[in-house]
Design a protein around this nucleic acid. Structure first.
Lengths: 149, 149
DNA sequence: CTATGTGCAAACTATTTGCCGTCTG
DNA sequence: CAGACGGCAAATAGTTTGCACATAG
């Protein structure tokens, strides 16, 4: 009752290396950042191969495709459920790990759970703010005035 | 204590018509959909002008720029706070108006409110499911199996 | 008047694809 | 050894930009 006519996927060296590099990268890299890293190990690899593999790996669930509005796609080797913070200053994407007093994420997830009853199967929740690096630079200097996006 | 060196914006006919067309369109149109509509009223308008004005209108807050991952930008003349449902089948974007028993959105917003304490200024929350049109087609036939995205 | 905006066309960026030879299973 | 895959280069799609003229305020 499964795998009827499913194309068979091979684990080529290219695919293997791409997967490894994404898994070893906590920065949510773009396709060309991945390309550069992989190229150090497989110099003649092409961008087309990288994209094809990113597609394949994402649709088979081995990696996650992030889709920040506007800018390019980014990829995440961490496929466990978590949210991201997109930095409004530098564009970097960080994981959000709230162990807040209010357990906000749990409240959120509970609320989101209710929605599935109304025809919603999934959601994407993204946060905007300053990443840890930009927060440091910004310091007490000035608070960022943020147009809601 | 304001408007120091701010460029002055003119309300040209092009800008006016673009704004009108977006405001009269509940479908969250793409740039080229807007272009086609505007072209019926200003035949010689160019795509460049449409894009420049969409940028300007969005950054001045007169319209909202939606940024569905992958696909093109879409725009919304309704700038009041609301969430969207992106149809996983046809890509259409609908407004979500939950007046659910659990008041899920209120719970959500309350939870999201807490996060601002932790350096998050804004968020984007998108839902995935079937839009009203595709829901009708799908009928009782088959439930969509949805990879979490 | 003059800075802001327009039309046009060319440029750009990220991503996708066709072709054909290569290699995995 | 067949079908999946890779390299290469060209093609796309969406969006942006430089330029010279037009126009709102």
């Amino acid at each position: 009752m499964k795998n009827t006519m499913m194309p068979h996927h091979r684990m080529t060296r290219q695919r293997q290396v791409i997967l490894e590099e994404i898994r070893n990268d906590k920065t949510h890299p773009t396709a060309d950042e991945i390309y550069e890293k992989v190229r150090k190990r497989i110099p003649r690899i092409s961008m087309g191969t990288v994209y094809r593999n990113l597609d394949m790996l994402a649709s088979s669930g081995l990696i996650k495709r992030l889709e920040p509005g506007r800018s390019q796609m980014r990829f995440d080797g961490d496929i466990t459920d978590h949210y991201h913070l997109t930095c409004v200053k530098c564009g970097r994407i960080e994981d959000i790990l709230f162990e807040s007093p209010e357990n906000s994420i749990e409240t959120l997830e509970r609320a989101l759970g209710h929605l599935t009853k109304y025809g919603v199967f999934g959601h994407r929740l993204e946060f905007f703010g300053l990443c840890s690096i930009c927060r440091r630079e910004e310091d007490v200097t000035g608070l960022v005035s943020l147009a809601a996006r």
